[in-house]
Design a protein around this nucleic acid. Structure first.
Length: 342
DNA sequence: ATGTTTCGCCTGGGTGTCGG
DNA sequence: CCGACACCCAGGCGAAACAT
């Protein structure tokens, strides 16, 4: 995903050649500007009229495309000059565009909000791994505005990335719940393993493993409440986007989503009774199988199967009532998550 | 080698201000 | 009125430094 691009959200290191060269104005390509409305002619005239020497423009070496300095180029033409001072940029087309945005944000005629928003959307496609703050720093938008644009335009690759690269070049997960659950299972299976061993196997940092271990010791969920809320919100957004398809049951519980959440809990997965509970629920969740099951029942058994089904239903009802009566901390906690996310 | 602490950064939520 | 923005805060992260 990152071929031909810089490793982190900064293009400052070693990409800009500091040597200034004089280049023929006619050889330069004027395309792919971050300005949606093109350059401002009045601004170019203003530069041309001011008799001060302007700094070199930045040009993408391989394509001779102007990255920064369209107005200065226009001013040079207005002044009747054939050549202009240029600093070449050696990098990918994608990075060249970002440099163009950064340059226009930080000096000269500022980009409009529409320009910057369009630039952010383009960066999401070319550099989906960048953090909101990194994109914000490049486009001159606020990080929260960038996050909002990302949510609006989240499609394909950008929506699937689970981690982002910050301005410090470090990779951080957007939601590390899966890594925490993996670590939780590994900690139960290998109680003597070091934090670093668990961290390596689970794909998270030792610091996070340490936090998971402390949570398990306190009998807490390895995933913090906030992350669980975020997961539930995501599930609900998907359900909303699907318009309430199979599995979405209106006001009722989304059985599949609830089942997936239960199956991710190491406490349930690591105990035999927990696994039994998951298996019992699992056979009920796939409602599309119901018609197939009805069809497979031999004609001599319908009455017996019906009675058996009612009997099981009564058992489950009693089970639910009994569970409801036990107002334990964990149960209340989970319900609070569901309520808050709703 | 391992566990712990520290640091700088991240996201997301809340609140108030400002300008189109 | 709404969107963008600037703050502030909480909770979380990876990486490095430090202590044992």
């Amino acid at each position: 995903m990152m071929e031909g691009t810089s490793k982190g959200p900064s293009r400052k290191s070693g990409l800009l050649d500091s040597d200034v060269e004089s280049v023929s104005v006619a050889s330069l390509v004027t395309a792919d500007s971050p300005r949606l409305a093109g350059e401002n002619v009045e601004h170019a005239y203003a530069i041309a009229r001011s008799n001060t020497a302007f700094p070199p423009i930045i040009v993408h070496r391989s394509s001779l495309r102007i990255i920064d300095g369209m107005h200065r180029l226009r001013a040079a033409v207005l002044q009747g000059r054939d050549e202009i001072d240029v600093t070449f940029f050696d990098g990918s087309e994608k990075d060249a565009f970002i440099l163009a945005v950064e340059s226009n944000v930080h000096h000269g005629l500022p980009l409009t909000l529409a320009d910057r928003t369009a630039a952010a959307e383009r960066i999401f496609k070319s550099h989906p791994e960048w953090s909101d703050r990194a994109v914000a720093a490049a486009t001159g938008l606020a990080a929260k505005t960038v996050a909002a644009i990302r949510r609006r335009s989240a499609t394909g690759e950008a929506a699937q990335l689970h981690s982002r690269i910050g301005r410090d070049g470090k990779v951080r997960p957007v939601n590390n719940a899966e890594g925490r659950r993996r670590a939780g299972i590994l900690l139960v299976q290998n109680p003597d393993a070091s934090l670093r061993e668990i961290a390596k196997a689970a794909g998270i940092s030792p610091g996070t493993v340490r936090d998971v271990r402390q949570r398990l010791r306190r009998n807490e969920d390895p995933v913090p409440l906030r992350q669980r809320k975020a997961e539930l919100k995501t599930v609900q957004k998907i359900r909303a986007a699907m318009g309430g398809g199979p599995g979405a049951t209106g006001r009722g519980l989304d059985q599949k989503a609830a089942m997936q959440a239960l199956m991710r809990d190491p406490q349930l997965r690591m105990s035999s009774d927990g696994r039994l509970l998951l298996r019992l629920f699992a056979v009920h969740v796939e409602t599309r199988q119901r018609q197939r099951l009805i069809k497979c029942i031999p004609s001599r058994w319908p009455r017996t199967v019906t009675e058996l089904a009612y009997s099981c239903a009564r058992e489950w009802y009693q089970f639910a009532k009994q569970l409801e009566a036990c107002e334990g901390g964990e149960t209340a906690d989970s319900e609070q998550v569901l309520e808050d996310a709703g």
